[in-house]
Design a protein around this nucleic acid. Sequence first.
DNA 1: AAAAAAC
Length: 502
Amino acid sequence: MSSDIQTAEKALSFAELGLSQKVLSAVTDAGYTQPTPIQAGAIPYVLAGKDVLGIAQTGTGKTASFVLPMLTRLEKGRARARMPRTLILEPTRELAAQVEENFNKYGKNHKLNIALLIGGVSFDEQDRKLERGADVLIATPGRMLDHRERGKLLLNGVDILVIDEADRMLDMGFIPDIERICEMIPFTRQTLFFSATMPPEITKLTEKFLQAPVRVEVARAATTAETVTQRLVKSGTKPWDKRAALRDLIQEEDESLKNAIIFCNRKVDVSELFRSLTKHDFNAGALHGDMDQRARMTMLSNFRDGKLKLLVASDVAARGLDIPDVSHVFNYDVPIHAEDYVHRIGRTGRAGRSGKAFTLVTRADAKHLDAIEQLTGQAIEWKSGDLSTLAVTDSEDEAPRRGRGNAKRGGRRRSDNERHARRGTKSTEAAEPVAARPDDAENERRGRKDAIRSHNDERKATRGESKARGAKRPARNTDDDHEIVLGFGDDVPAFMRIPAKV
DNA sequence: AAAAAAC
């Protein structure tokens, strides 16, 4: 490859990058004409067999920058049993699934075998695909190593190795695994390495495992400030304060709110907030890493398809997930690490669209908020009044509106009553207003399907919607009686079992 | 103050 890479800055078309006809026609069918900078910069080198160090954020078209040329290169040759020809490592299961979708989309004119090796699902199908011979293996490190240790996977036929989201792999402690994996693959391979940032550990890794790499660096996609309107929203500290503040906010934003991701710092809070929103008749789903894999996939695909308007999520959803057209991001919690703030609000305002990001802030959050403003280099505006305008009571002694007569104390912890309350039990103990089902976590541990409340019309019809809509009535524990939880049993429709099409 | 990933 010669120097014409410089022209990447100008408007190159996909056809000029050297991709095969099969790939080009799939790209055209997908509606793309113009490569992004990372694509224009990396594709010619990938086609030429060079090692590439790509420094790019998600949302820059990074995935296609390796998927498209890999497809072209895979047209020659075929896979042998248990010896995949290419390997792509991803930090999370959802990202791995998303890359698989890209191979399906752009590889529709190819007859390639693609295997997705991720945790949380059965080995059998994955084994069958390996046995058949995979042209493309997409994996999270743990499951891939597991297959290998069982002797079901040979890595000495891998010609192209892709390490994606390397800095996130670092955050997640995957680097030792990555090093092991790199050492299992012949050094004659081509290595494509992607990272949004280059901390020293990552630089060291590239020095060790890349050979004379071409460095392709692209500016961050539109900076957050340009397409995302950010606001801070004051809130009391207590969970019920925060939930109420969030509900108010969602309702105020109703007009422009098409769909939203609501981020919590902790998984238990994801479950809790999800239950609460559902109880208040919001069309919501949940996503976090302790949910079973099928529920994760279902939630994500329903959110993408618009069947879910709100997705309550942990930071598993903060980076990389490609969900076009998210209108709002709500930070139910201020993220502990400032960089996560940038990733979270980056879920909206994508592809040149505008987006809104609201962050609930309590008195306790000052420190983390400072760090965020420092990182982004800008003060974020308050929506209406900062914390100094917050009522002093902070609902400390208000046993939340719907409490029982003898409710008292602020800062009541979840009582043992609640903790041991069983589903469907009519307790005379009024539950804390919108408290999560205390047994949520336990259900998940037991492998019960994470349930979502049905919002489809037939269900609504059966549950006396008008009653439920009478917003302001105090919540009683009899709420449980109206609550219809739709669990996904074994009769999940087939289309829900597969990852969403983008 | 957390999350993620293998069983």
